[in-house]
Design a protein around this nucleic acid. Structure first.
Ligand code: ZN
Ligand code: ZN
Ligand code: ZN
Ligand code: ZN
Lengths: 139, 139
DNA sequence: GTCTTACTGATAATCATTGTCAAAACGAGG
DNA sequence: CCTCGTTTTGACAATGATTATCAGTAAGAC
């Protein structure tokens, strides 16, 4: 294989717009929802570009991504820096809280090795209805 | 709303075949994978029918369903009866172990209410590479 | 400015899943 | 066993989120 010539990143108008949209909210939204918001805010960014930007950001750890039960991927800006964490997310409005659970991490590793499994990964997501949404009687 | 006239279930050849296939394995497979297996075993069951059967079984709690990171839904027969449980699944072959974690359940409820969230639901899945797959050097 | 190369956006393609609907199969009752 | 109202089936179209294409655009190094 070739020594992979270090891929460069360029800060474009579009990427900046996506970043700005992400910064303006702490809620989980789908790529299409972010795209809608950008268009409504006057941007002419293309849908594919939004997908690409969000995926790149998710890979680099700058945004959090979760997959819903229906298979949709939701993104939001990551508030917790590099650190591994989980979420408590409102199913109705996308609001989310960062959750830390170091005990779980250790427990998962132990259980896995007890069963002979290696290269462990895990998915932990809590969903519910936030106080505001409950008050409005949504859902 | 109408008194919902008690929906009946009929045991058809196709549903029996799906059940039989599920009984013959403890591994998580996609609807399409189960369909393939059924066709290879001589059945002429249609793909849509397999989807319908698996969904019905999942709703009734007779099979476990998980959504992968890529959005695909995997099914396998449920070994743990009605009881709520989680899985440690091999990413390569679909093998899975049932995992119980009552502490987590309690913890999740507590965290959620501390943040003012109600109607809590949760997703906890562990994935890894099982001993057999690791031995074969797959992945 | 010039040039190389990554990026963009309109659009087509993919792929799992769901909807449609006429034909076939259940199974209760006779 | 035969009949009949329902449920189920299966081939195929449709959906909807995501990805691939590819010609044109624009970072940013020099
Ligand atoms: Zn909410
Ligand atoms: Zn974790
Ligand atoms: Zn395995
Ligand atoms: Zn649980």
């Amino acid at each position: 294989m070739t020594p992979s010539p270090a891929p460069q990143q360029r800060m474009t108008k579009q990427r900046a717009a996506v970043l700005e949209a992400l910064e303006a909210s702490t809620e989980f939204r789908s790529a299409q929802a972010w795209h809608d918001r950008l268009r409504h805010d006057g941007s002419t960014v293309g849908l594919a570009t939004v997908y690409r930007a969000l995926q790149a950001l998710a890979e680099s750890g700058d945004v959090d991504a979760v997959v819903t039960d229906s298979g949709e991927t939701l993104y939001r800006r990551c508030e917790a820096g590099e650190e591994h964490h989980h979420h408590l997310r409102c199913r109705l409005c996308g609001r989310a809280e960062d959750i830390d659970m170091p005990e779980f991490e250790r427990w998962a590793d132990r259980i896995a090795s007890q069963h002979g499994y290696s290269r462990i990964d895990h998915t932990v997501e809590l969903t519910g209805v936030c106080e505001a949404c409950a008050a409005e009687g949504r859902g």
